[in-house]
Design a protein around this nucleic acid. Structure first.
Lengths: 92, 92
DNA sequence: TTGACATATTCTGATATAGGAATATATCGT
DNA sequence: ACGATATATTCCTATATCAGAATATGTCAA
């Protein structure tokens, strides 16, 4: 019987492997945004955006606050520090 | 009928999402190494290491040269530049 | 040439995850 | 209370990819 793989513990490296998620983070550098803004700018279906946001939230790359019926997402660059620290060693 | 996803064009971001591959790159910062060295240091089966090396090669993160029956792999940090450039915008 | 060594490839089965569609939940305005 | 709006979740299916095992390929040494 085949071995189970290690439990899925998504990390920041995984989160940014998806181009759409990098795009979302890029958009959020412009400041806090409601989901629908991202939907419009990305040209993706709303559920997909919500799902990507969930992944980003799980690794701490974005944070959320509620405002009426909207949910405003903002960047948390701190969560990308492991990536920055790692790739730093490969500069020329 | 469900839509096909975009053709798999692995990029550097994908390549480094896998922890073992980052480990391989880390080992190669110490200089050129034959596959078996990596096998021993990683504690992985040889075929898995070869497969990871293939992915790394596909994105240009490592280069290879043959020496007798060995194949010596070396780092090509240049391939990680897109990652560096991207993450740079998220520094605090 | 034969066998040992070094590495790559192929096959298989399990799992993670993407997108689409449908639906659920919550909040606002009237 | 009702409909509209904003977002999240769930179900489904296709695909990518990982690990393991077996095998293939190539090279050296005796």
């Amino acid at each position: 019987m085949p071995m189970a793989r290690a439990a899925t513990t998504a990390d920041a490296f995984n989160a940014i492997a998806e181009p759409r998620r990098r795009q979302i983070l890029d958009l959020l550098t412009g400041g806090e945004r409601p989901v629908n803004d991202l939907v419009l700018e990305l040209g993706l279906a709303q559920p997909q955006v919500s799902k990507h946001l969930r992944v980003l939230r799980a690794v701490g790359a974005v944070e959320m606050r509620e405002a009426g019926r909207q949910r405003l997402y903002r960047l948390n660059g701190e969560a990308l520090k492991p990536i920055h620290d790692w790739v730093k060693n490969y500069e020329r």
